[in-house]
């Protein structure tokens, strides 16, 4: 596959916003709707697909900097398969891990619910399945339990950090865009409220006018 950065015509170190701009520019040129009367319609469509793929690839690479080394869910590698234990439990755990690797989180959850012995690995898999289903709070609880049971496991710690990291990432991003003060307590609340009210009325918010909720 060709270099996605070349397809979009941007530098490897370009910021995400620049990449988005480049993508937008190219997708406007090659978009099927813009090429209805173009004699080389098929070619444009081909190019459009390439641009989309390149953009997606860049996004994926930047989101998963460790991907490609270990494969598996989020680049976490395998789940310590087969260590000579072939009892019912570990077979089931492996099945759950497989489901997670293939992003079938509901099925993984289902398998996990039927396992009665809950060890560190169980909690770890449960956390992964929960994270995949969007239950990010429960996932954090799970991985905490896994860490309590097996404090030395680096995999658990890595997942914990990943789940924890969201807040820091968000704050850093917000600060980067200049919204640092937005969430601290502002010096004069009254003004805020007054401004909010003026704002509401300005743009004819019906809630602000006759159904006063929650503004």
């Amino acid at each position: 596959m060709s270099d996605p950065y070349q397809v979009l015509g941007v530098d490897r170190n370009a910021s995400m916003d620049d990449i988005k701009k480049a993508y937008r520019k190219l997708s406007r040129v090659y978009h099927p709707d813009a090429n209805i009367n173009n004699p080389n319609k098929a070619e444009a469509e081909e190019k459009f697909k390439k641009v989309q793929e390149a953009y997606q690839q860049i996004v994926y690479e930047r989101e998963h900097p460790y991907a490609g080394t270990g494969g598996g869910f989020g680049g976490f590698g395998g789940f310590g398969t087969a260590q000579g234990e072939d009892d019912q439990e570990s077979v089931e755990l492996r099945a759950a891990a497989n489901y997670i690797n293939n992003r079938h989180f509901k099925e993984a959850m289902h398998v996990l619910e039927h396992i009665s012995v809950k060890n560190g690995q169980w909690y770890y898999l449960h956390a992964l399945a929960n994270a995949g289903l969007g239950n990010n709070l429960t996932a954090e609880e799970d991985v905490k339990k896994a860490m309590q049971l097996e404090p030395d496991n680096w995999q658990y710690r890595q997942l914990y950090q990943m789940l924890q990291g969201g807040g820091n990432w968000y704050e850093a991003m917000g600060n980067g865009y200049g919204f640092g003060g937005g969430r601290g307590v502002q010096t004069n609340c009254c003004w805020d409220i007054i401004l909010m009210n003026i704002f509401c009325n300005c743009c004819c918010n019906p809630y602000g006018c006759f159904v006063c909720r929650p503004c």
């Binding site: 917000g174 865009y177 919204f179 937005g182 969430r183 307590v185 609340c189 409220i193 909010m196």
Partner: peptide, 14 residues
């Protein structure tokens, strides 16, 4: 996304 969604939160806190 980074600031406005908290405006209400701040208001309540105040």
């Amino acid at each position: 996304l980074y600031s406005g969604i908290w405006a209400h939160h701040e208001k309540v806190k105040c």
